[in-house]
Amino acid sequence: MITQTLVQPSSWVEAGIDLRKVRGLKLFKFNHELQTRLETLIERQKANLLTPEEATELAGLTELERIFTLINARIIAES
């Protein structure tokens, strides 16, 4: 296991997460603003332009995205 500093993913739950109906199932998705921020951070990372704070933010968003992928996969599998 790798230890790293990251923004607590729960900090985005209130304002950055939507429950969207996809093929009749409610799935967890980033809202438009949070998805855009994730994409911006990924582009900055590819260009080696991330600040340490942005790297921390990207780590948190990436972890939250992984969590949602797992939860959404389970919702789909159980439907």
Rank of each mutant, 00 (worst) to 15 (best):
L25M: 10
D18T: 13
T56C: 05
E65A: 14
L64E: 06
I75R: 15
E57P: 09
L50W: 08
R37Q: 10
K26E: 02
I67G: 03
L41E: 03
E43A: 11
I17Y: 01
M1L: 04
E14T: 10
L41G: 04
R44N: 04
L38H: 09
E54N: 13
S79G: 14
W12P: 05
R66S: 13
F68E: 11
L6I: 06
E65H: 13
T56E: 09
N48Q: 13
T40M: 05
A73Q: 14
S11M: 02
R20V: 06
L41Q: 05
V7N: 01
S10K: 08
R37V: 10
V7D: 00
E14V: 12
L34P: 07
P52D: 14
F68G: 10
F28C: 02
M1G: 15
R20E: 06
Q35A: 11
E54D: 09
T56Y: 06
G16M: 01
A55K: 13
L38P: 04
T3A: 08
L61Q: 06
L58H: 03
S11G: 01
W12C: 07
W12Q: 07
L70I: 15
R66D: 08
S79F: 15
L19Y: 07
L6G: 03
A59P: 02
P9H: 02
I17N: 00
S79E: 14
T36D: 10
A55P: 07
N72V: 07
A55Y: 03
E63W: 14
L25S: 00
E57L: 11
N72Q: 08
I71W: 08
T69S: 15
R66V: 09
T51C: 12
T51R: 14
E78C: 12
V7P: 01
A73L: 13
F28A: 10
T69R: 15
H32I: 07
V22P: 00
E53L: 13
L50C: 11
A59I: 04
T56L: 03
I71Y: 12
A15V: 07
T69E: 14
E39M: 04
T56H: 12
Q4T: 13
I76E: 14
S79L: 13
S79P: 10
H32M: 01
V13K: 09
V22R: 11
A77P: 06
K46P: 00
